[in-house]
Structures are given as C-alpha cells and as structure tokens.
C-alpha cells in the first residue's frame, strides 16, 4: 500500500512538473509552430500521469472500482488521440494564416513549394 501511495504521489508531481516546463517552453519557443510542437508533453504524458495518479489514489481510499478504471483508460486514450488531432488542425490553420514562421527554420520545404 505504501508503495502505491508513493507511486501515486510521484506520478502526480512529475506530471505537474511536465505542465510547468511546457508553460515555460511557451516563452522560449520562437514561433507559433514551435509552441504547438512543444505542447506535446503536457497533453500526451503529463495529463495521463495525473489522471492515473488520481485513479490510484481513489482506489486506495475506496477500494477497487472497475468502472473507475474503465473511465480512466478511456480518458487516457482520448487525451492522446484527441490532442494529436487538435494539434494537426491548429498547425494547418497556422500555416494557412499569415502567422510568421521563424527565419532560422532551415530547411523549409513549405516555402519552396508555394
């Protein structure tokens, strides 16, 4: 039990630190495409870790509940798939709008094809 409590706490803190580093990386990235790219760790790794930590914590307090674990599994799969599709749509919209791409982006195959 103490091992599971330690695991849940570690998962929660590491997931939260991933969110914090992504928030700082939004200042460090130089253009909008890099910022969309740097969002990945938060939604693909940080949020599933936090949801898993919450499920472990609730199971320790109230006993094993299969419905809770099914919901957690659906949440994790949906986070990974949905955030990926959302990033694709947003990146395509950014390219089609007049947002500037950083000058240091080299090679840039989009520029030569237009």
């Amino acid at each position: 039990m103490i091992v599971l409590e330690f695991l849940a706490g570690t998962l929660a803190i590491v997931g939260a630190l991933l969110f914090l580093s992504v928030a700082i990386a939004q200042f460090r990235a130089r253009d909008a495409l890099s910022r969309i790219n740097a969002l990945g760790p938060a939604t693909a790794l940080g949020a599933p870790m936090l949801v898993l930590a919450v499920a472990i914590g609730r199971s320790l307090e109230q006993g094993l509940d299969w419905m809770l674990w099914i919901k957690t599994a659906i949440t994790i799969v949906a986070l990974v798939v949905v955030s990926s599709v959302a990033s694709n749509v947003l990146a395509r919209a950014t390219c089609r709008s007049d947002a500037a791409v950083d000058e240091a982006t080299h090679p840039n195959d989009l520029r030569s094809s237009q």
Binding site: L33, I36, N37, A38, G40, P41, A44, L45, V80, S83, S84, V85, S87, N88, A91, R92, T94, C95, L110
Partner: peptide, 11 residues
C-alpha cells in the same frame, strides 16, 4: 508523428 513531442505535421 504529432503526438511525439518534437515533430508536428503541418500539412
């Protein structure tokens, strides 16, 4: 590709 941090499909 998109879900891997560091690579992103733009089109």
């Amino acid at each position: 590709i998109t879900i891997t941090p560091g690579t992103l499909v733009v089109g």
